[in-house]
Write a protein that binds this DNA or RNA. Structure first.
Lengths: 343, 343
DNA sequence: GTGGATATCCAAAGCGCTTTGAGAGGAAAT
DNA sequence: ATTTCCTCTCAAAGCGCTTTGGATATCCAC
């Protein structure tokens, strides 16, 4: 059943070369011959062996990503959503991914292995940290890559796609300040990730411009699961002087925070304002919250698609994309933000 | 920098054969020679080219999965969680996945392509439907595969891992009946998927054994996103004779349902009971709901790991696993279930 | 010392594809 | 008729690895 090039050529009474050329769109082949070849491919169900193709061309038609994983580590819903974007775009070009799971502390070795294996044409990086060692490493390995996010410090000349996290949280904070809030809490992502650091910076900057400082007691860092949103919020509310507004780094965190607020008997949008960053997760829409959530929005899925486009474009040598892109998140005001109480 | 076998052999003053054998653990190589080779590998950072290896052996050391995707289709959080399980196990054996995105209506062709490409040793299947055409197809292609879930109808002799959905929802329904509930609603997954059908069957069976029938008006099918849980529940509550209990096919659906119940001013566990199926999604734990959720629990991630184990075991010819496994979901009673009101 | 194991190692043949460098044939130009 | 230039096709090399089928050397027993 499974035919290979040689057999196909035999059936057609042609040489492998000609068949190969006909298939790969080389000009020096008769239109009629090409048709015959294509017809035979249809009839036999011939599919080129990718491994052989790869060995011959050096191209793998696939992009590699390292999936952070370990027995204790929770799967990240954001990762899945991003993947969906990558996938959506890749399918158009008949590309696939090679997903290489790896424990975080083994990530460097995994990258090295992946790059050397010849299994992938390009790599994708995320979960950037300050002075991320993977960037110089990949540059040294001279394999194309695109980063989702940005490192902080270290070399600056690498291809990335990021959203302007500082700006987003600056905007959000400013809105709260204008509404009269002074005690603003932040339920942020893990403190070792670059985006968290930038978001906090945005908050800090807005507060300082307003003549206020950050209250470190009102800043929590954690993995983005609703459980932590709940705990952090509960913690904040138990303070002698609780915040009147809270910023969440994800709608998932907001989910927990909202629960804590409800349980405390407070009204969202009047007693306390909530703003979350919305990655546009289809299963958790801010407009569906009991009180629709004000958000800074930027589609993770769109980012995935865009990165796939750039990566693939780079591989097949088509398209010329900017090396560095910084998307601005949109501030969308809904009912969860209102004037500070007592004003 | 990137050394290949030939160069490595040259450096060592050995033939490629010997080096290859030393690396692959063949017995006919001197222990001392093997050490020398391994040392050289360490020094040079030699990595075998997978494509070449694949071409020579026919083994790809990777398993393929088709990721259902399309511009309009939402990413499924359950998919990500399952993937995490697969990954966790695969990383131990240095396997990776080839993720092939595909539009649902193109799935068959994608499978065929994937199988013929030689890129993968085995395939993984999920989102089973009744009489799923992919099963006979893969059998015909004679490529190893394992199904997560089970089809309904069609051939029965194929390798799968499933949870006993009928049993799980039978158990859950029975609990509700024992608590005195008679009007029991079901917010189920998509009606074209086998697991949904089985879950409904479990509910039906329990009701019938109790001398009751299913009220089709109280059964909704939808994608598993909180939005639909909310809508369905709201819909049920607006009926003249609303249900006193509801079963949800996912904690994600329950999230929406709970919101609708809260909004209606009803108390969970007394006015209305809720049971959800819990796939053990780390970002959404039933014990963290404002009223902890009674659930039927079965870890999606564990299923992923188990399937990876079986798939990989089959490929490297190690281990002998049962072809078919049916896991039983655990019924865990929490505060969201209580006696039917007025009893 | 000779035949037969045993232990080590090697040359070479693929695996299925792309691609280089040429050859064959015909049309156009001289 | 010869040369030049296309157009179309082909044989063969090579991608980096595994594996078959020896070759060589060593060692034992008889």
């Amino acid at each position: 059943m499974a035919v290979n090039l040689k057999q196909l050529a035999e059936i057609l009474g042609l040489s492998q070369t000609t068949v190969s050329r006909a298939l790969n769109g080389y000009p020096e082949v008769n239109a009629e011959t090409r048709q015959r070849v294509l017809q035979a491919v249809r009839e036999t169900g011939y599919r080129p062996n990718r491994a052989a193709q790869r060995l011959a061309t050096g191209k793998a038609y696939s992009i590699g990503l390292v999936m952070p994983i370990a027995p204790g580590i929770d799967s990240d819903i954001h990762f899945g959503e991003f993947l969906a974007g990558l996938a959506e775009e890749s399918v158009k070009h008949d590309f696939h991914f090679v997903l290489n799971p790896s424990a975080p502390d083994d990530e460097e070795a995994t990258f090295r292995r992946l790059a050397a294996s010849g299994n992938v044409d390009a790599l994708f990086l995320a979960y950037m940290r300050p002075n991320d060692p993977r960037i110089p490493m990949l540059k040294a390995l001279s394999i194309p890559f695109v980063v989702h996010g940005r490192s902080i410090g270290g070399p600056r000349d690498y291809p990335f796609l990021d959203i302007d996290n500082t700006q987003a949280f600056y905007d959000a904070t400013k809105l709260l300040l204008q509404l009269g809030h002074h005690r603003i809490a932040l339920i942020n992502g893990p403190d070792y990730l670059a985006f968290s650091i930038r978001r906090k910076k945005g908050v800090t900057r807005a507060l300082e411009e307003w003549g206020l400082g950050v209250d470190e007691e009102l800043v929590h860092h954690s993995v983005m699961a609703d459980e932590y949103g709940y705990r952090s919020m509960q913690h904040f509310l138990e303070r002698p002087n609780p915040p009147t507004a809270v910023l969440c780094s994800s709608t998932v965190l907001a989910l927990g925070a909202v629960r804590a607020i409800n349980r405390a008997g407070l009204a969202i949008g009047s007693d306390i304002s909530v703003i979350a960053h919305d990655d546009v997760l289809p299963m958790l829409k801010p407009e569906n919250f009991s009180v629709p959530l004000t958000t800074t929005r930027s589609s993770l899925r769109a980012a995935g698609a865009r990165i796939a486009t750039r990566l693939i474009g780079g591989i097949i040598g088509r398209g010329d994309y900017p090396e560095q892109e910084l998307w601005r998140a949109e501030l969308i005001v809904r009912a969860s933000t209102g004037p500070a109480p007592g004003r």
